[in-house]
Each structure stands twice: as C-alpha cells, then as structure tokens.
Amino acid sequence: MQLAINIAVLAAIYALIACGYVLIYRVSRVLNLAHGELMMLSSYLLLTTASLFSGNPLIALGVAVGLSLCVGVLVYLFLMRRMTGEMVLAAVLTTVALGVLLRGLVVLIWSAQQQNPAQALGWVNYSLPVFGGRISAAGAGLIMTTALVYVGLFLFLRFTRYGIRMRAAGQNPLLAAQRGISLHVIYALAWGLSTLTGALAGILISLDSGLDSTMVLIGLKAFPAALVGGLDSLAGALIGALIIAAAEVLMIYYVDALLSDVVPFLVLILMLIVRPWGLFGTREELDRV
C-alpha cells in the first residue's frame, strides 16, 4: 500500500509541474525550460511573504501564489512577447537564458542556504495514516491540489470564455487573431497560469522537504512526464506523470535507486522513438516545430 501512496505522491508532483509545461506549449508552442526556475522562485517568494506576514500563514501562501501569477505575466510581457513569431528554437533558448538568470538572482537575494518554508510559516508537517500506509500532510496536500488544479483547468478550458479562447489560439493562432482574440492577452494568461501551477507545486514540495536550488532539477525531471503524455495534452500530462512516477518508484524498490535518476529520460527516449508526439498528443504538432 505504501508503494501505491509513494507513487501517487510522486505522480502528483510530476503532474502538477507538467501541466505548466503543457499550458504554455499548447497555447504558444513554446517549451518553457525555465519552468523549474520559476517554480523555485515562487517557493522563495513564499519565504519572503512568510516573514512579511508572520503569524498569518494562509495570507503568506496566498500572496506568494498571487505574486507568482504576476511573475508569469510579467515574464511574458517583458520577455517572451518579443519572441512571439520568432523561431520556436529562439524562444526556447530565451527561456533557458531566463532560467540561468533566475538561478543567479535567487542566490543573490536569498543565498544558497537550505531553507525551510514550513518552519517559516510555523507549520508542522504531520503524518497521516491512510489505507494501511502513511502520507505526510504536504503530500496529501499535493495530491489534492493536483486534482483540484486539473479539474479546474479542465472546466476553465472547456466552459469559460477565456478558456475557449485559449484553446482557439492554440489550434490556429492566425485565425484566432483574426476573429478578434487578443493573442497577447491569451499568451500572458497562459504564462501566468503556468507559473501559478508551478508555484503551487514548488511551494508544496518545499513545505514537504525544504528548499534549495535542486528544485530546478525536479522541474526538469517532470518534463519527461509532459512529453510522454503528449506536450499539448493535459490528460496526457496526468497519465505521463503516473507512468514516470511508477517507473521511478518501482525502479527504487526493485532494481537500483541510482537508475531512478535516469529512468524518466530513458522512458522519454523510448517514447520519442516509438511515438514522438506522446500518448495523447496531436500528431501534426510534430511537423509544426
């Protein structure tokens, strides 16, 4: 049972991160390789808000998440907007550069020390018994948040005006623009939402197990999940996360823990050979890149 819980927690982590990759890719065909860094930035923002609003952990949390949304929108407005319509590769490399910049800034502002946001908020990470196994409060929070985020995104994309516009912009940007959809607003929204979900993931991970710059690598490890599922499919990201998490945890249990580090990427290579567009991705996407 503990095995299933461990897989579920890891899958939730990967899924929550992966949906950030998918959101941006689906709308603007840009792969955001700075996602891990943005995630880390948000978690560090929580540290600051926790000391600003000490005694009010919920407000601190809310403000940090809100700030992350703003960061995402600002990144689009001041940086990625200029890359709209440029070669996709140039845009991707811009996100890489952004990532490098953020890594530097985070250390400059918060130092490289290991931090504990849970302690800063004054929270204790209780351990809860479930179905014969145990799960940490933050882990349970992760699973619930992931479920909520996915349901929320599904409803948003299916039923709200902006959600439908987002899908339209993703399907055919030119046509969408001609129908009066402001692409910049839509793209900014996608960046904001993506950073927001990334922030949730980063914050919850750091509440569970502390915060330092290895957070970036966790963001990168979640990337195979998005790609295995199909870079433009949210459902795919969920399934992909489950596959990668299961492969990783089973590897730790039954083969060699050290392999768990490369397994996501091995699965990724396998997927790229067999079905490059992913389990649920659209095939034509491949030719557009």
């Binding site: 940086l79 440029e86 550069a97 990532g99 490098v100 953020l102 530097g104 800034l105 250390v107």
Partner: peptide, 23 residues
C-alpha cells in the same frame, strides 16, 4: 561570495539580450 550568482545572472542577461536584440 556573490560572484557565481553574478556570473549566472549576467550570463542569462547577455544571452537574453542577444536573443532579443541581436539574433
């Protein structure tokens, strides 16, 4: 103690500037 962080940040900025302004 900040040097590597400066380096990182500067490297990122230079890369961004080239990508955006001088492709």
């Amino acid at each position: 103690g900040m040097l590597a962080a400066f380096n990182y940040a500067a490297f990122g900025i230079v890369m961004i500037l080239f990508l955006v302004f001088e492709p």
